[in-house]
């Protein structure tokens, strides 16, 4: 509501024909109440604007805030279906799937490299928080072709290849 109540009240008293009656007093009270509401809205609007900080020092964080940018992930991989190990597990963050279903991998984006003696492995890895997906790839020490799986990052994940 954007009524110029002050002007309206001035107008009322400017009209000589207005008689100070009970009804008139009631109108004035209502008008004054509306005036108070408008002021309150303006005050709330001011508070809302003041909340957008312009400098870091104006921020207020929670006490437990940690200023680090990584999360951890508990990853379990099972290759029993592939006939088990020995094998080598790698986890990458930069890769592209090409038209022929081949994974083109940036080998400098490895988060984990691990020898697998048995069919299963569990590792905890730290991941930059802006990442959402990773590629898990397992190579074997024989003629078996490597297997790959893209995963969504989660706190704890078990996959079967």
């Amino acid at each position: 509501m954007n009524i110029n109540l002050k002007s309206y009240i001035k107008t009322l008293f400017a009209v000589k024909s207005v008689q100070v009656t009970f009804q008139g007093l009631l109108s004035i009270c209502i008008l004054l109440s509306l005036l108070a509401c408008q002021h309150q809205e303006e005050k709330e609007a001011d508070v809302h604007t003041e909340k957008e900080a312009t400098s870091t020092s104006q921020l207020k964080a929670l006490a437990e805030m940690k200023y680090i940018s990584h999360t951890s992930m508990d990853l379990a991989v099972d290759i029993n279906f592939q006939g088990g190990g020995p094998a080598y597990l790698s986890v990458y963050s930069k890769y592209v799937r090409e038209n022929n279903d081949h994974w083109k991998i940036n080998y400098d984006s490895r988060l984990l490299a691990s020898y697998m003696i048995n069919s299963q492995i569990r590792q905890e890895i730290a991941i930059p928080q802006h990442l959402t997906r990773l590629l898990v790839q397992v190579w074997f020490y024989d003629d078996r072709a490597p297997v790959s799986k893209e995963i969504l990052i989660d706190k704890r994940l078990s996959i079967q290849l």
Partner: peptide
Amino acid sequence: IEISDIGVSYRYYPENGSWV
């Protein structure tokens, strides 16, 4: 490169070729 024995894992942060 890393020359290793069997059973060893390498945990990189953030990755083996990049930085935080």
